[in-house]
Amino acid sequence: MNRALVAILACAGIVATFAAVFASDQVPTQKPISGYDFMTTEVQQLQDDDFANPGLLWVEEGQTIWDDTKVASGKSCASCHGDAATAMRGVATRYPAYSAEADHVINLEQQINQCRRERQGESDFPYESEPLLSITALVSAQSKGLPQSVAIVGPAAESFERGKAFFYQRRGQLNLSCANCHEQHAGDHLRGESISQGQVNGFPIYRALWQTMGSTHRMFAWCNEAVRAEPYPAGSQEYVDLELFERWRGQVLKIETPAVRR
């Protein structure tokens, strides 16, 4: 896009309209492929097993939290929302999303904690804690099979652009960007291991390496440290922005939560 043209349009006072069109016209640089397709058969079978997928233990724990009325307000998630299976269907496909209350883009974990603070009178579940992973897994699992569809226009546009810049920024002692591996070399191998596109449509995931559930932000931090870059804290705006870009980048991919990865 021509910068001079941008300037002219801005001067003409139609910058907002233009920004929206500009953002929504973006397309991912490659056809999105789920991490599932980069896994071995055993890992895929564990994910597909509607009993043995270990992530379902967290989803069930999430259901217990959903129904828990032992909170300051006495109101469980179910008290306001009803049945998670119907009320939460499709919700995870839209996050991260702009929150008018927060006045910035927040992710699903942060939306859940916002609810906890304002509706339940409770303090946040700490990031990466078992309850936050569990309730996030429950809510996300209700969108299983639905494509990710985050908004990157309007108030989310800046967050999206920051996330995109993060994705392409080389960092760390090894001086590698996310894109270096997950865009330029998806399908190739690091040692014996195939490189995925780094899509996040299955999060929170049960990761065999961790032997437990983990969030997108734990994965981002793990990857950052792998290239010997200082990670950002889980829940940081940097990672929320990156998550937004990642969700958009895999826009057509269906939610797989709880996915199993190696």
Binding site: R170, R171, G172, Q173, N175, R228, A229, P231
Partner: peptide, 13 residues
């Protein structure tokens, strides 16, 4: 380099 982890900062691989 950008944002090298503290324990590697200023060091060669």
């Amino acid at each position: 380099l950008t944002r090298v982890q503290t324990k590697y900062a200023g060091k060669t691989i």
